[in-house]
Amino acid sequence: MKLYSVEIEERRRRVVDVVAPSEAAAKASVGMRATRSGLSTRILGVCETQLAPSAPDGLRALDHLLNAKFLPIRDTPQTLRFWVLNAEHQLVHEHENTEMMELLQLGLSRAGLRVSMVEEVIHLSVAGDAVPFLPQVFAETPWAKNGWRKAFMALPGATPGQNTFAGIRSRSARIPLRQTLDALNSERSASNANLH
């Protein structure tokens, strides 16, 4: 599986990240989403998503984490990106679906993650190596052996914390989610522009 960025035009232009086995499948996935939502969508371009090696270490670590395969929803494989973005959506829309928010937080907790609102800003807390899932995700990467926490703490707005994740108390790095995702998308766009 590869991660593709699919640029679409709705009322506004934006880039949607889609995990798919091919460019055609990424386009089809966006088309199905648009049909389900009743929006008229025109795809403007598709490119395989990459981050340059020169991208900030914390952003590359976050990109690696968000692309990790995680629990399926309705028998459809999902990445942590899906889980995190859906939890963010639930917080922005003030828990539209309380059961869904509880399910998302429970699942994310097992991964050593928590999405929460702190002073009107949505944050992503990432556990240290006490939560078994994270050392597996970062094994054989530059962020192994709890190096991910150091990388995340170097991101703008990051603060140290202590949280309980699925019953395990752990030190954590708390990052402003939307600000960091916007920086990640900008870095990805710049990297992809250099490929063409």
Rank of each mutant, 00 (worst) to 15 (best):
L71T: 12
E7C: 05
R169F: 13
A166G: 04
D75W: 13
L124M: 04
L108D: 07
I43V: 15
P160C: 05
V84F: 03
E187A: 15
F138R: 03
R171A: 12
C47F: 15
L104M: 06
G58D: 02
V126R: 00
P77C: 03
Q105F: 06
T159V: 14
T180A: 01
A25H: 14
C47A: 12
M117V: 11
G31A: 09
A190Y: 13
R188S: 14
S29N: 01
M100D: 01
I73S: 01
E9G: 01
L134C: 02
E99F: 11
P21M: 04
L177R: 02
S186I: 06
P56H: 06
L66R: 11
Q78W: 08
T164H: 02
M117F: 13
L71R: 14
S189F: 15
W148T: 07
V115R: 02
R13L: 09
R12Q: 07
T76S: 10
E88I: 07
R171E: 15
W148L: 10
H93V: 09
E48Y: 09
L39F: 13
V16Y: 05
L39A: 10
G38T: 13
R81H: 13
P77Q: 13
E119Y: 11
L65G: 05
N194I: 14
K69P: 10
P156T: 03
A55Y: 10
F70D: 04
M32I: 08
A183I: 07
V131C: 01
R12W: 08
Q50D: 00
L51W: 08
L184D: 07
A111Q: 07
L44W: 08
V46I: 15
P21K: 14
R12I: 08
V30Y: 01
I122Y: 06
V131I: 09
L59R: 05
S172R: 05
L108P: 04
A25M: 09
L124R: 03
L3N: 09
L106Q: 09
T79S: 15
H95V: 06
Q162S: 13
D129G: 01
A166M: 02
A166F: 13
S186M: 14
T35S: 00
S5Y: 14
R174I: 09
L59E: 03
L51G: 05
G161C: 00
T79Y: 09
G38K: 10
L51S: 04
E9W: 11
L62E: 03
M1A: 12
F152Q: 00
L80Y: 03
F133E: 04
C47D: 08
E94M: 07
Y4N: 00
N185T: 11
T79K: 05
P135R: 03
A166D: 12
E140S: 12
A55F: 11
Q136T: 15
H93N: 11
M117D: 09
P56C: 04
G157A: 02
V15Q: 02
S40W: 05
N192M: 15
S116G: 07
S189G: 05
I73A: 02
A193K: 13
M117N: 14
G45A: 07
K69D: 09
H123Q: 06
A87F: 05
E23G: 09
E119H: 14
S116P: 01
A151V: 11
P142S: 04
R33H: 06
T76D: 05
R178Y: 06
